[in-house]
Amino acid sequence: MSLPQHLKVEAYRRMLRIRRFEEEGTRLFKEGQIPGAYHGSIGQEAAIVGACLALKDDDAMTGTHRSHGHPIGKGADLKALMAELMGKESGICKGRGGSMHLADSSVGIISESAIVGGGIPLATGVGLSAKVRRTQQVCLCFFGDGAVNQGTFHESLNMGSLWQLPVIYFCENNGYAIVTSLASSHGQPSIVARAQAYGMPGVAVDGQDVTAVYDATSEATARARRGAGPTLIEAKTYRYDEHNVGLLVPGKPYRSPAEVEEYRTRRDPIVLFRQYLMADGFTEAQLSAVESEVAAAVSEAIRFAHESPLPSPEKLFEYMYSDSPAVSVK
């Protein structure tokens, strides 16, 4: 199930959209135009896009505090995402969610949870719903290596397997939870090795290779759609920046500069895929056109965000409930 021809340029486009969005977003954050905390996905683009491309439009997804790449990977419009980062009313969550919660339901995202492991039960529930309603939908659940130790991972995978729910449990294993290495926090280093405990298959894949990720995820979605249950996919990937932009890490470095350099120069998912495309017969002109288009889309998104108004405090209580009463602030 290799990456089909009609998706190859799209894969490149989406990975590049994530990369440029995050680069610009990081710059804007450092300039003070984006508040809060910024958790970027630079380096993890292939893991995200390879998985998303294996899904259909009506499939669902859940994600994490490292939330920007997921909607972009699933094809979301960048304007509403950038506006959300700037806390604008035109943001995808009307300025109420922010950077850790870029949940774009128009592309099927149910939640981007900032509580580590918080989205895994939700994804399992989406799978349950699909099964009860007898649809052909699947739910892709993104989480990191840190979430694997959270009790919700254990509880959710057990239920997903028990009831053969159409869920793909997709671990973006970037090797570190903030600064805590996998080796120091996991009883044994293979995340897929935990799958057999629940009676489901586990598949490890090179997360820097978008075609490999696509293959593995396609197989898992096909499995899920024919009623054979969930799969645990472990995509070994890498995060270039710190856990969040500007994080100060005192004392001994938790990872060597050589390791970061190795990934940046020899395992960059976009560089690797561009090489693959060129070897596959795509031309420099074709790829440059995509690059220009992406640059324009990101600029447009920033312009849109800048020009959008902030939410008005009178509307503070909107979206609390299905019908929100007005309450004054004393």
């Binding site: 943001g91 300025g95 919660h101 902030l310 939410p311 405090p313 503070l316 209580f317 309450v327």
Partner: peptide, 12 residues
């Protein structure tokens, strides 16, 4: 603090 979920946007 009023009974509302804490919104992201500083304006709110």
């Amino acid at each position: 603090t009023p009974d509302v979920q804490i919104p992201y946007s500083a304006a709110l």
